[in-house]
Design a protein around this nucleic acid. Structure first.
Lengths: 138, 138
DNA sequence: TACTTATTGAAAACGATTTTCAATTTCAAA
DNA sequence: TTTGAAATTGAAAATCGTTTTCAATAAGTA
């Protein structure tokens, strides 16, 4: 019935497709903001009341391992997850409603080279996150 | 005896100077990598064995509130603290030894304007963190 | 020196996450 | 279809990091 890429990914990695996993996947996929495990639990249970919180944790773990979701770091905490992007993308968060957008196309080469030269570090990775107000919240 | 800026800051904000606070302050100030509360506890107790873990948490809370320390976000967790910079600075972390350096002079205006135009967001803040290998670990 | 009040460490409480376990469900093989 | 092995489940218990409570102590002012 569902030709869902995430479910296929789970299956191809040897995981079984269960109602609990479908419920968690659907919940995260349809959210425009990052959700904590308990939030996923509360939302998903509306459609699948038998769901247990433990299964939420276990499914999130697998989805993160497959890079289908990613953890969102914020000043208030780092327990929330959002659908992961494809390739190299960064996050843009609305400080009012929590909406998360992904963007790509950062060109930090100049900056990174300068810092590398100044500090002697070999730089292998970077995190960039922007905070602001989405159009609706301005 | 100690003409320490952090201790003065604490005092000026109405907090008393105690051995527990001195021990925590000294521990963080002399560390080149981010420390978790328990790590601070273990290190500080070597010089002040009577220290309690609760006082570590309470002192970290006050130091963070005064912006003297900052929380370090990493893939493995976000509970560690490092001495805070002055003004607008970003972190550069060694993925091998954990050493943390601060740098400033990021010019993200072009990038931020482009993202702002593309998404309609008003961008008010940003986080940038670089990961790599320090000279000693290469 | 005396006194008020912040601060302390220990123990208990708490909340989030993980582990254990018997029952259930999935899915491949018959 | 049916069967059966193995993965997955939810509930309960255990665990971990952090916070609260509380009586004793220490800091700093008068």
């Amino acid at each position: 019935m569902v030709a869902d890429a995430w479910l296929i990914q789970l299956q191809e990695n040897g995981y079984r497709l269960t109602e609990a996993r479908r419920a968690v996947v659907r919940t995260i996929q349809t959210s425009s903001r990052a959700l904590t495990p308990v939030e996923v639990f509360d939302i998903a249970r509306k459609k699948y009341p038998a769901l247990g919180l433990v299964s939420v944790y276990r499914t999130l773990e697998k989805l993160e391992e497959l890079h289908l979701i990613q953890r969102v770091h914020q000043p208030q905490g780092c327990q929330a997850f959002i659908a992961g992007g494809s390739g190299h993308e960064h996050l843009l968060l609305c400080q009012n409603c929590g909406q998360v957008m992904l963007f790509e196309g950062d060109d930090l080469d100049g900056l990174i080279n300068a810092i590398s030269k100044k500090t002697g570090y070999i730089i292998r990775d970077h995190w960039l996150q922007l905070f602001g107000l989405c159009e609706a919240c301005q």
